[in-house]
Design a protein around this nucleic acid. Sequence first.
DNA 1: GGCTGGCACTCTTGCCATGCGAGTGCCAAA
DNA 2: TTTGGCACTCGCATGGCAAGAGTGCCAGCC
Lengths: 345, 345
Amino acid sequence: MTNLPSINDRALALLKTLVERYIQEGQPVGSRTLARESGMNLSPATIRNVMADLENLGLVTSPHTSAGRVPTAQGYRLFVDRLLTVQPVDEQTVNRFREELTGSRNPDEVIDAASSLLSEVTRLAGLVMLPRHEKMILRHIEFLHLSERKVLVILVINDQEVQNRVITTQRDFTPAELQQVANYLNAEFAGRELESIRSGIIDSMQQTRDDMHALMQTAVDLADRVVRTSREGDCVIAGGTNLMGYAEMADVEKLRQLFEAFERKLDILHILDQSIEAEGLQIFIGEESGYEALGECSLVTTPYKVEGDVIGVLGVIGPTRMAYDRVIPVVDMTAKILGSLLSPA
Amino acid sequence: MTNLPSINDRALALLKTLVERYIQEGQPVGSRTLARESGMNLSPATIRNVMADLENLGLVTSPHTSAGRVPTAQGYRLFVDRLLTVQPVDEQTVNRFREELTGSRNPDEVIDAASSLLSEVTRLAGLVMLPRHEKMILRHIEFLHLSERKVLVILVINDQEVQNRVITTQRDFTPAELQQVANYLNAEFAGRELESIRSGIIDSMQQTRDDMHALMQTAVDLADRVVRTSREGDCVIAGGTNLMGYAEMADVEKLRQLFEAFERKLDILHILDQSIEAEGLQIFIGEESGYEALGECSLVTTPYKVEGDVIGVLGVIGPTRMAYDRVIPVVDMTAKILGSLLSPA
DNA sequence: GGCTGGCACTCTTGCCATGCGAGTGCCAAA
DNA sequence: TTTGGCACTCGCATGGCAAGAGTGCCAGCC
């Protein structure tokens, strides 16, 4: 079937004002209000006819027989795709983002700050997926003798990531021995990809003393675990409390499901993963996300890039009835700033 | 006035069953129920007389004229102080805690796991304050040349804490130079308290080249910041969603205040701070905590120790109507296990 | 003096009927 | 194609009513 057979400009204009009005007020919009608001000099009766058409097309619906119209997910979809006029972010906010994000030196801190700022400015919940590293390059490895048979292993990966763990060794290594192993590993493997190091180590096992093997093996295991669990594919959610207080979240049971999704993070990550592929800003409206718990919610997401490569996704989550025109540019801007701050230069 | 003038054993026993019953059911307990439940072979009328006395003493109250009795904060207080018989933690749960906490090597992970386990087992929200370090001893410092004028500073403090930050230097240092400074600092200051290092460095400034000053100065600044901001006096809260779904949290506005307190953390920390002093398990009931947002909530906290010294506090927060008899031993056990796992040996 | 049964009273809760307001659907006329 | 009119449908707030649960108090009993 053709998508929108009978929809004309007037109907679109009315849909636009309806959605805008509903986003503002949160209550079903009646024909009388719409007639006043639209500035089109039409009588309520005419509006009603148009509304009936829009309802047939599945763009609006009424909660009950006599209660005005509310946009459906499809209605929002059409709205954001074709009718939306975005509000530019005001200078002040841009500066605030730039300052507060530049203020934190540590990459983890930048991520946290970005999520908090997003949530604060939009009054929704902020989401930032941790940057993924295509290439995990070992910069430096260091062993530190803590106590008998306890060794602290420090791995520096890429530019700024430091991973560390305490391991228990088979026998007690002297600081000198540890230094020796570290020197060897650094000379041999620094600058190489973490993935390729494992096999490299095994190859070179023949040349080292037996009990050094164990230590190196442990180091490799650590590196392995780092590759898999380094918060890669994790995300930071901030400002969940903002979502309480929206009328559509008045039901505690719904709230609970939502917050459980936040704690579990899996569903959220899955959605973010989807949008890492898609170049550019994406909006998931209501059921579109495919998750029960996010029923009444929309997500606005966009990937952020470093040197042209997409390395993560950020955005916000909030009630379907959110001020898309203000939210979208904020998300967009955050991605740009975050990307530029995470680039190595 | 003398505290409990006319209170006798029978009244206490009735208060006990009343509180137990109310904790179980969550609804005001009437005289008929209490007569049945108490096993004391008394008529409802007698119970009513006793209840009137308890109400005069401020231990119970009725939500309205005809609705049974509910314990007041003072009632709970008396209950937990004098009437409570705790249920020992079952073997299985103890083992679970021991295993899952031993499973995570990194101290931060242990803390997180402890909080999660607490929340999961008690079905309340878990709180764990990060361990404080009386003595912050510099174990090791390391500089890593990242790019022109960017240096990664890695500080190892005490046994397992690794702190790192990227700093921008005045001029470009060669890796050899960085090594030299690190060697110097390690030789001179490793093993000393962070606090005392600042002055030590200033003293020794005369002996080093001018532009090394700047680098060392930056390192000291970093150390300084570590002292102040190393998540010290922070805490981990897990399982907040558990609290939704309790009838007393049905009001979204209350929930919101509570979760905002969780995000802010300040009030929570203040309460935890109070109980770090008090040797042993503490219970804050309802208004006792002094915070509006925690109105209907109780906290069960206990300090955890390493080598006899209290280094932090953990516990749970939940509705006043919580199963103290099951919760208390769990909190207690967690503190013991966590303490033993964090000790350096 | 303490315990008990009885009785009147209070308060909540659920239910039903009612009325009002807002808004729609449809029709006939302009 | 637009418009005014009219009947109709809901939701929501209100008030009255009955049932149920529980209390307070009193008089009698041990």
